[in-house]
Write a protein that binds this DNA or RNA. Structure first.
Lengths: 393, 393
DNA sequence: CGGCTTCATATGTACGTACAACTTTTATTT
DNA sequence: AAATAAAAGTTGTACGTACATATGAAGCCG
């Protein structure tokens, strides 16, 4: 009874001899693992295929049943051998497809089943949805989540990156800080790549870095919102845009493009940029100022997001105006806020939970299949028309 | 044919059902890893012995044949489960002697600077504040955060506890699931204590377990809200209470006590209990029903939280009533929502970020000063009076 | 008592069968 | 030609058996 396909050893014949051999070896603490069990011989045979280059990484090896024939052993024994090699990282199995040689080029780190997530704000109104989407997917895959937030502050981002990268994570989902500006933490991302740790950026990306990202087509979102208002007959539309992240700039681009395409001239007075620190007061004051102006009154407002829209609504009430009769308003994000007020906001909707989930998904794929490129995903927004906008003459 | 020693699931009976269940779940990308294979159930059972402290390090666990009897599965299956756990470092085997629990304390003694946080909902409107409070404090102390959410579901809580406890955390902040009901995961908390890992509960606690907790005095909050309305002259006050967590029950208690103290009789028709699953529709329908009734109309409403209050506001508008002229409304939590609408809600405010921060603080103290008892903290709520309540005759 | 065997019990190896779950290929139908 | 169904191939789970090997305790005996 011999293991057919293997050269060096035969079974029973060597068995007795080797028993003594092994026993003496044990004292020397050498080759203790080299029991000449059948599954170990099969294991070594497979291993030699890999080492000798007979199978390349990602290439399918012989099926279990073929090996049963080749080695003349039971399937159980073959599975035992393969199982060991899978645990040791030589192979991976895919049900229904086969067993494959893994790419052990730079791996060799025990999987921690740990994913880092860095967001700008934890308590802001839409990020929890994104986190939740990622959380539910990752949890279902047995991964844990390491969470940190940067408060849209580059220094804090640096601190987050440092603490999280110390934890030997398998992957990272990050919403970059102030993406419109130059970021001094680029080195950390380059380090991630050098370390072969996959990462995805959500909501934004650094143009300098060609990093995989999931984004919403904000240019189109801004375009949709503006076009909606223009189609309703509005010609003087105020636009509030946050300009320290790319999302705001893109929304503004789309907003302007819609105006150009429909040959609506833009009054620069009506374009109000602001940054994170000014979000509470600047848009409100700008609106009051614009309403005081002698020139032709604006008839519509596009807001960077629903939160700003609600602030704007406060000013509208204070000025005794009515929505949508006197002023149409379009928000962005389609958050809880959009339906909280007496005026149900027309808003640009985009996937939130799904984005988190997708981020998690592509990340896990990149982890499981080392070396696989993460392809950028762009989500298309959708305009949800409610009662805050109306047609005018 | 059932896996005897394990409570929750039975095999073949569930097997076929779950096949389909799993298949549908896959589309939802949920729980894909939680195959309910027999060897996985056995594995989890053994793992829980360890986590719950039923077997100490270096102690022998039940033999394979005993487990065959206990679980009613084949030896092959038991070996598969044990094999996995050996690979993952939970157990080690010695031929002829038995299988033993490995001593994982010695191996990774180094402080991990890792704190687990388990909440019910991540995306719900006030929890992000709590998480953020904890996050900012912990980050400043150089700790990282491991996050998971239970969706207020006991089964998911179990899964969270298992994955997080695998990660060798230094401490745990947990918001318990459905605290008004009996919880089957108590063993895990006892295991934490046995393992000398400090933990704090927030928002709720299990009376059975004498666990350290941070809570809001919800009884007083309910009392304040009701007393405020009674002082304003209201005598028929509707109360919406969530009754599957302790917070809701406490708010109800305080609400009732205020009525008793001021000798205001309570119409049972006006007390509306609901649970998590019914929160969207039941309160709204109840209000419509009450307003249709022939009896004397109620003049005020107390809502379990601001989210419910906003739903109620929708019904109020639909019925063409005015707030506060026709109906006074008091909310709870003083969330963003309280100021989102045209009616600025009177609401019961409690510390949110501060609670998260305090939880983190006491936990870190308990970690640094081993053996120190964590003293329970009760936060006092505060009534923020806005324009949704008014005096009546 | 010390040393030996024997026996019960534990894990380790190896064989076998059957069916489930998944993927890919082929054949069939529309 | 495209959509659909069936078949074949592959890994995954689970049952069973048998015997090998290692340990520890009980019993035997010089």
């Amino acid at each position: 009874m011999t293991l057919k396909g293997v050269k060096p050893f035969s079974f029973i014949t060597m068995d007795v001899m080797l028993c003594y051999n092994v026993r003496t070896c044990i004292n020397l603490k050498v080759n203790q693992n080299m029991h000449n069990t059948k599954h170990n011989q099969v294991k070594e045979a497979i291993q030699s295929w890999i080492l000798e280059g007979k199978v390349a990484p990602r290439q399918k090896i012989k099926s279990e049943n073929e090996m049963v024939e080749i080695f003349g052993v039971s399937r159980h024994t073959v599975r035992q051998a393969i199982g060991d090699l899978v645990h040791e990282g030589w192979l991976y199995r895919e049900q229904g497809r086969g067993t494959f040689c893994s790419d052990r080029t730079l791996s060799d780190q025990k999987p921690n089943k740990l994913i880092g997530i860095i967001t700008t704000y934890i308590s802001d109104y839409i990020f929890p949805s994104i986190i939740r989407g990622a959380e539910s997917y990752l949890n279902s895959k047995g991964y844990s989540i390491l969470l940190a937030s940067t408060n849209n502050n580059v220094k804090e981002e640096k601190a987050c990156l440092q603490t999280i990268l110390n934890k030997n994570i398998d992957g990272l989902i990050i919403e970059p800080t102030k993406s419109a500006l130059y970021n001094e933490n680029l080195n950390y991302y380059l380090g991630l790549e050098a370390n072969n740790t996959p990462y995805v950026m959500i909501n934004a990306y650094y143009p300098q870095l060609q990093s995989p990202s999931l984004t919403v087509n904000d240019e189109q979102g801004g375009h949709m919102a503006a076009e909606h208002l223009i189609h309703l007959g509005h010609r003087r539309i105020i636009g509030f845009f946050k300009t320290d992240d790319l999302q705001g700039l893109h929304r503004m681009q789309g907003f302007l493009r819609a105006h150009r395409e429909h040959r609506v001239t833009i009054d620069p007075e009506l374009i109000v940029p602001f940054n994170t620190e000014e979000k509470e007061e600047k848009p409100k004051e700008a609106l009051r100022r614009i309403l005081r102006m002698k020139s032709e009154k604006p008839t519509a407002v596009f807001c960077y997001n629903d939160e700003i829209a609600l602030n704007i609504l406060d000013v509208v009430r204070e000025q005794q105006l009515k929505v949508p009769e006197d002023l149409s308003i379009v928000g962005y994000d389609d958050s809880h806020f959009a339906q909280a007020s007496e005026v149900k906001l027309t808003s640009v909707k985009h996937p939130k939970m799904v984005m988190g989930e997708t981020a998690a998904q592509v990340l896990i794929e990149a982890i499981q299949e080392k070396g696989r490129e993460i392809e950028p995903v762009v989500f298309q927004p959708e305009l949800i028309v409610r009662s805050s906008t109306r047609k005018i003459e």
